[in-house]
Design a protein around this nucleic acid. Structure first.
Length: 481
RNA sequence: GGCCCCAUCGUCUAGUGGUUAGGACAUCGGCCUCUCACGUCGGUAACACGAGUUCAAAUCUCGUUGGGGUCACCA
């Protein structure tokens, strides 16, 4: 049987890294097995759901390259994929459950129950109120406002096998008669989830461990309906650096934040997958390697803490290594960040050359755009502190000499230039450092840059000499003062 | 508090009875060097605790402690 898995976000905020990881594991499983990856929007809470959130989540998914085979925008045989549009389906099954005697209508008002809950809470905050089953055997019809509650067995235990955590057994008397359908007819999560997972033919439910406690209730529903159980895989939680649960409202861990910072999707995916899943000592994976090697049984059971520094390093690795991101890919990705700095798309070949020089120096695409800036801005922005320190009277002679030397350089190529200048440095007794530093500021405007000779090659002879001459002017001006 | 889950360096993890407990990030030092990076070499750093089982336990069992999740007409 072909695998069908789903990602079921509730659109009440950004897609955060924890949610993205859940989606990723499901997506990898589908892609590895030629299965189907479904996105289903769980928006039965009208209060908290928003279309903006739907768009934010879908945009993030798309950017990460997790394409879905069924769901919003693409449709599919089980449409609609918004739970808010499936009300009558849930209502039908709620009725069926009542008819089967597995559920009942409860006419207790929310106000009354809230009052009892507050009372119980006041009496003992550690022992909260649980619905006592007032309407359990009353057989109410639909004449009064009602909710539908599931009739939880008073004895026995509910058992299921989790792919990550193994066998899980929960005594039934620890549960209470939970609500399936609310007064307004909207289903509650545990119910809509089961109905949809069944109707959509989900074979494996991969979700966060925060759902582990819901699963026994859902298993009861499958059993009451005589539906086959999907397999379950619960993922250990990704906690923030302090060890608390990640929130969708914390923009600091939103996927789109890392996009804006200039991480690549592959870098994000790589960090996320290694959080809770591992394959020996391998740290870096391509997208295809992940698809090929993912498996549920290599997921650990312990929760972890999100680590910004490690994330940054993995992202850097995916930016730095040509076998992970081609030069063309890099150029394409950095382009928008250059545009944001007001730099127009430079010549493709020159951009490629320039990227090669800054590649080990840029941890993000924002860094990259910043590091590339001087190549494409004429004149380059001059760092005042660097100029004050290095374009001074002492720099006049080295710069004059360098310019002379370069004018006559027979071969405008990095190694040739370097050895040529080094020979001259030795002959003249001017230290390499005293030549290179002023030249660097003249050429790049900064005290730190890629290697001098690589820079000159990218700039070409004419622009290099032009910039050095300008630097020389500045140095002379400083000397005159 | 009930129920459920978890426990290896600061962090992510490898490890499935016998290892000098490995890797990565971070951190500290050396090297490379025209700057900054990259790279490279090396250091500090972990099996929560206590009982068992066993010739042998990070690995199995039980307990303790600690952490987390969840207990809504949220998802």
């Amino acid at each position: 049987m072909s695998e069908r898995v789903r990602f079921a976000p509730s659109p009440s905020g950004y897609l955060h890294v924890g949610g993205a990881r859940t989606a990723l594991f499901n997506w990898l499983w589908a892609r590895q097995n030629g299965g189907t990856f479904i996105v289903r929007v769980e928006d039965t809470d009208q209060e908290r759901s928003s279309l903006d959130s739907v768009r934010a989540v879908l945009d993030a998914m798309r950017w990460l390259g997790m394409d879905w085979d069924e769901g919003p925008e693409v449709g599919g045989p089980h449409a609609p994929y918004f739970q808010s549009e499936r009300r009558d389906i849930y209502a039908r099954y709620a009725d069926e459950l009542v008819e089967r005697g597995a559920a009942y209508r409860c006419v207790c008002t929310k106000e009354e129950l809230d009052r009892q809950r507050a009372e119980a809470l006041a009496k003992n905050p550690k022992d909260p109120f649980r619905y006592p089953g007032t309407c359990r055997d009353k057989n109410h019809d639909k004449s009064k406002p009602y909710v539908v509650r599931f009739k939880v067995p008073h004895s026995g235990a509910t058992v299921f096998e989790d792919l990550v955590f193994g066998p899980i057994s929960t005594p039934n008397d620890a549960q209470y008669d939970f609500v399936l359908a609310r007064g307004d007819g909207f289903p509650v999560y545990n119910f809509s989830c089961v109905v949809d997972d069944h109707l959509m033919g989900i074979t494996l439910v991969g979700r966060g461990r925060d759902h582990l406690g819901n699963t026994p209730q859902q298993v009861m529903l499958y059993q009451a309906m005589d539906w086959a159980l999907p397999r379950f895989a619960h993922l250990p939680l990704m906690l923030d650096k302090k060890g608390a649960k990640l929130s969708k409202r914390m923009a600091s861990v939103a996927v789109q934040d890392y996009r804006d910072k200039g991480y690549t999707p592959e870098g994000v995916l790589n960090y996320l997958v290694r959080f809770g899943w591992s394959l020996g000592d391998q740290e870096i994976f391509t997208r295809q390697q992940l698809i090929d090697s993912f498996s549920w049984d290599r997921i650990g059971r312990a929760d972890g803490k999100f680590d910004e520094a490690k994330f940054a390093d993995v992202a850097f690795e995916h930016l730095k290594e040509p076998h992970l991101l081609s030069l063309e890919g890099y150029a394409e990705r950095v382009q928008p960040f250059l545009a944001a700095r007001g730099l127009s798309a430079p010549d493709k070949q020159q951009l490629g050359q320039a990227i090669e020089t800054i590649r080990p120096r840029a941890r993000t695409l924002i860094d990259a755009a910043q590091a590339l800036d001087f190549y494409f801005r004429e004149p380059p922005e001059l760092d005042a502190a660097a100029a004050a320190k290095l374009l001074v009277a002492d720099a006049v002679a080295p710069l004059e000499g360098l310019i002379e030397r370069l004018k006559n350089a027979p071969n405008w190529e990095a190694h040739a230039l370097e050895s040529d200048v080094k020979v001259w440095s030795e002959q003249s007794g001017i230290k390499m450092k005293d030549i290179a530093q002023p030249a660097r500021v003249a050429l790049t405007g900064k005290a730190a840059s890629p290697g001098l000779f690589e820079v000159m090659v990218v700039l070409g002879r004419e622009r290099s000499l032009q910039r050095l001459a300008r630097g020389l002017d500045v140095a002379r001006g400083a000397g005159a003062r």
